[in-house]
């Protein structure tokens, strides 16, 4: 069984991103290829901010997601519309909006909701973390 995760809860106002991380760790431990992809929407896109710096004695959630995705080879998609309005811009979006900086963290990709629809139709189960 392959899962897609839709994460909508803010990394700062909820434990959605934390719970989803624990779910993915358990899933890949049991079945290595069980995660098809993870799609961040609503305030969950804030996780993909490369400029956020958690205090050194706290858990670095963005980094934990990056490491987990790279080591298990699944994509981290971030809704482009939700991201851009919240200041998460890739290099190309930054150029498009004539900004001098970009802020999308490595290993995250900006994608439209159409990518989520595609994931929904090609995955056995989709689970929302809110």
């Amino acid at each position: 069984m392959q899962y897609t995760l839709l994460i909508t809860g803010s990394p700062y106002q909820s434990k959605a991103c934390h719970s989803a991380l624990r779910f993915v760790k358990a899933a890949v431990a049991a079945h290595p290829n069980s995660i098809k992809g993870v799609f961040f929407y609503e305030d969950a896109v804030l996780l993909a901010n490369a400029l956020s710096q958690p205090p050194r004695d706290e858990y670095n959630l963005t980094q934990a997601w990056q490491e987990l995705a790279v080591s298990n080879n699944f994509p981290l998609y971030v809704c482009i519309a939700a991201s851009v309005r919240r200041g998460i811009l890739s290099e190309s979006e930054s150029q498009r909006y004539e900004q001098s900086q970009h802020s999308l963290a490595e290993h995250f990709q900006l994608e439209g909701l159409g990518t989520l629809v595609d994931l929904i139709n090609t995955t056995d189960k989709i689970i929302q973390f809110k």
Partner: peptide
């Protein structure tokens, strides 16, 4: 907040893709 708007956005995109 934006939740209601972003929920509706998802509904419209799903419908656009004939879901």
């Amino acid at each position: 907040g934006l939740a209601c708007k972003e929920g509706l956005d998802l509904a419209l995109v799903l419908a656009t893709f004939e879901q």
